[in-house]
Amino acid sequence: MTVVPPPELRFRRRVRVRQAAVELWRARELVATLAERELRTRYKQAVLGFAWALIPPVGLMLVFTFFVRHVGHVSTQGTPYQLYAYLGLLPWTFFTASVMNGGVSLVVNVPLLNKVYCPREVFPIASVAAATFDGLISTLVLLVLFPLNSRAPQPTTYWVPLLLAIQLLFTLGVVLLVAGVVVYLRDVRHLLPIALQLGLFITPVAYSLHSVPRHLRGLYVAANPLGAVIDGYRRCVLLGRAPDLHLVAVAGVSSTCLFVLAFWAFKRLETGVADVA
């Protein structure tokens, strides 16, 4: 008997996109159930229930408004700051919730991972789905904010689905990457809140994308597609203009690349999840 295995026998897991998609489709019920569970456990015990979905964005919006009114000035191109900030906070809180919950989703679900085979990406995806639900609820606040500021969404709002797709792709990419890494380096999860806090400052949530010098904007948006997404929302919903298509294209390409890379890396890392879990 050989003591060391022949290297040519090294097990390579072939990941076929089609097969992965079929498996994911089969597991859709599991995704839905996991997302539902996540929402239910989060809100069932809490006294305020689903209001918790509203508290992060609305709270931050109030804080920002307070500071902008008393400390600094932010150029909103003549639109009410409350709306301006909230349109940035919606994608941002969605992103934060996704990364916080999705990032640890594999670690949290270790007992399941060790028992039943299912495509492992269902866990991060379920977290993103739960965050989407929260996002929809917090979007309802706009129904109050628009009349309150005597404004209405502009007809150019039809750009939203495109921006939403980029936002989703980018978020999924980050979540998959973080989820895969956290399994191997457990303490990275403690870094997450700090990294996200930092992210809030380097993303035009409280301020405008115009704060970034014009010649650097393309580069900036490539690194942080959320910048283009937020700017796009503000332009089309609030200002009645089309999003900056150049920036949106850059953000779209960069998000797609990140997603593909993250999915590939996740499938790679996933192979060893049951070993270290």
């Binding site: 295995p5 022949p6 026998l9 090294r10 097990f11 060790n114 039943v116 085979y117 192979t271 060893g272």
Partner: peptide, 15 residues
């Protein structure tokens, strides 16, 4: 058994 259920993956070999 875990490898047969695909919960775990082998290091070397064909499956």
């Amino acid at each position: 058994l875990k490898i047969l259920t695909r919960v775990m993956y082998p290091t070397y070999g064909r499956l």
